[in-house]
Design a protein around this nucleic acid. Sequence first.
DNA 1: AATATTTTTTAGTCAAGACTAAAAATTTAT
DNA 2: ATAAATTTTTAGTCTTGACTAAAAAATATT
Lengths: 220, 220
Amino acid sequence: MATSFAEENYLKIIYRLSESTLEDISTNAVAELTQTKAASVTDMLRKLAEKGWVNYQKYQGVRLTEEGEKIALSIVRKHRLWEVFLVEKMGFNWDEVHEIAEQLEHIESEALINKLDEFLDFPKTDPHGDPIPNKEGILPELGYMHLSDLKENKACVLMGVAKDSAVFLQLLTRLHLSLGAKLIVKEINPFDRSISVSINESGPVFISHEVAKNILIKMA
Amino acid sequence: MATSFAEENYLKIIYRLSESTLEDISTNAVAELTQTKAASVTDMLRKLAEKGWVNYQKYQGVRLTEEGEKIALSIVRKHRLWEVFLVEKMGFNWDEVHEIAEQLEHIESEALINKLDEFLDFPKTDPHGDPIPNKEGILPELGYMHLSDLKENKACVLMGVAKDSAVFLQLLTRLHLSLGAKLIVKEINPFDRSISVSINESGPVFISHEVAKNILIKMA
DNA sequence: AATATTTTTTAGTCAAGACTAAAAATTTAT
DNA sequence: ATAAATTTTTAGTCTTGACTAAAAAATATT
């Protein structure tokens, strides 16, 4: 069955919200990310349920069905592959690619996206460290932790971010926090849980708990 | 002013039709290419005129204004650059790229299209030999002729096609008529104006007048 | 020049996807 | 446990861009 631009957006956003929780997704949460009003979301959820892409009982929130998740994963795959293309081949910065990829993700051509995948050498992650589903919709298992969960004096490598708003990414860039950086948590401030981190063996930088929560790492 | 997907399509199609005639473009001609009905076209032409992108008097047909042509040229530029990308970088054949480029041409990012242009080495023509407008909307002057206008025993080089339907392109491929081929018109059949042509010094191939009309050449 | 044909426009609908305001259900607080 | 606050849904509209059927204008034919 064909999917409209709007339907694809809703499925993608429900998928994104499901990534970070096991609970059903609320109407308001969807409204916020789609930049629409709750009433519009209710309408759309009924339509998506009708088509068998979500399970939705009114007032109970929403979850993707298996079929809905398959569609969402194909959108996510396209979005993330295009982001790799924009950074690696077009020379954009990691904070510039989201909006463009939001458009490119709706281009309909299985053939194109598979050729693009090959052209990019089958990347496992996008420029923010998010995993890219393969042709079959399988996500690579990355097993990243949040920097905010790391103990003092442990070394790790920055592998990704859990949020890709431009302002957040620009902040990281200003702090010299980029993918692949070697980090050691020097000190955790008990007052506000802010931390000081050394980056690639150089002088420590101070990071709020909020920022640390959104940095994904693997142990060195 | 922002342009919708539908508006961009109409402007592009009016531009295409204007390329091959000096007369005003009829409602029906537009309807055929947009795959809509004449009544829908009338509606849209009123809206486009409202926005200052076309000159339209009812029953008199339509022409692009300067501003409308500027928008159309930017869509055409995107369409043709994406086609080059699809053939050169993604490995598609010249008869496979039109539909995908119809989608890609609506991606909104001046920065992206200029980077793409650079990435492709500022091509002058698309995979069908159609000229690509530059950043300023200027079309390179190619000065091609139609193969159907060539005299007998004159040599020329195949530079483009005036029609990019998949069936036509597949026919040319089967006849070994591809961009850059050296052609000599051996014989013009006065009965139906079909011609026999030698291709790259090898045995002649027979071509209808209809086909010859849609092949663009430059003198050798 | 009058009639027939074709093209274009008008008038009235429809579906998708958004909105606001008000009602209903759920959750939180007292 | 009830009241207050919040969330979600319903009901009714709006805009965009399509449609059909009928009317009007332009073009072609005799």
